[in-house]
């Protein structure tokens, strides 16, 4: 297992998709601050109109709001998803999976090692984003914005999103394991990332209309990502997050490992 992790780490180090995702996520996390800096420089007239509204929106915002915008609005997750998919299917696209399967290495271990390293890659993207949001925010809003419960809220929110990310990584890996080609990218982006929450909301509405007092979207990871509050997070929400993420993580991992073990390698 250690050897496989060692090999996957080397692949991650050499992975162009990882480097590009890291760079794009970093640039994207700085966009708000970049716009603010441009407005502050006086190059653009911000006395009225759309520019004034944008400047007010940024000025009224905070580091925590920016962090929420990055994680809850799935701005960062789109880059993470593309990286996860490209990395997960790379062994199948190249055929390199044949170099490891059937060489006395258990397939479950292969899958688990891939999960751990893709998770490491995804977490590093999130941590870099959070770091840049914080550092950029300090420059943009000044140290006054870091007060009272800031660090508590910042770390609880970040920790919850890292838990969601772990579960999300397992789900995307399962999708890619089943498709084993670029269809995995499309299904992950459109099916999981973009459309799953709206579809579940519609199902909730239909169930409500039918008199069923149960909201299925409460138990889907994308709904949790979108609805996670930035501060004063209720304990019940944290507990529900942990249970839902745990169940999806274990289910996806187990499903992926079983499927990887069972299906022939083309």
């Amino acid at each position: 297992m250690i050897n496989l992790i060692h090999a996957e780490l080397y692949k991650l180090k050499k992975s162009t998709s990882y480097k590009v995702a890291l760079l794009l996520a970093a640039l994207f996390s700085m966009i708000t601050y970049f716009v603010y800096a441009v407005f502050q420089s006086g190059w653009i007239d911000t006395s009225s109109g759309l520019n004034a509204a944008m400047l007010k929106s940024i000025t009224d915002s905070s580091i925590l709001d920016t962090l929420r915008q990055m994680f809850a609005n799935t701005n960062t997750l789109i880059f993470v998803t593309i990286f996860l998919c490209l990395f997960a299917i790379s062994d199948y696209r190249s055929g390199a999976v044949k170099n490891f399967v059937g060489k006395g290495i258990r397939r479950e271990k292969l899958y688990l090692a891939r999960f751990l390293i893709t998770e490491l890659g995804a977490v590093s993207i999130y941590l870099l984003t959070a770091f840049l949001v914080f550092v950029g925010g300090m420059f943009c809003y000044g140290s006054d914005s870091v007060n009272g419960t800031f660090f508590h809220d910042f770390f609880v929110f970040l920790t919850l999103h890292l838990i969601y990310l772990t579960c999300y990584t397992a789900i995307i890996l399962l999708v890619c394991e089943i498709t084993r080609n670029v269809a995995g990218i499309l299904i992950s982006i459109f099916g999981v990332l973009m459309l799953s929450s709206p579809i579940l909301s519609v199902i909730d509405l239909l169930m409500n209309a039918a008199g069923v007092r149960f909201e299925i979207s409460d138990y889907w990871i994308m709904s949790l990502i979108a609805s996670c509050p930035i501060n004063d997070i209720p304990t019940a929400f944290i507990v529900r997050s942990g249970i839902v993420a745990g169940v999806w993580l274990i289910g996806s991992l187990a499903g992926g490992m079983l499927y990887h073990s069972w299906r022939d390698i083309a």
Partner: peptide, 23 residues
Amino acid sequence: ESPGLYRGMSARDNLEVVRRAYG
């Protein structure tokens, strides 16, 4: 069938991945 190679890596890097995986 076809050799399983990481197209974006050199020959040396391709072997290095496999060397590490095999321990």
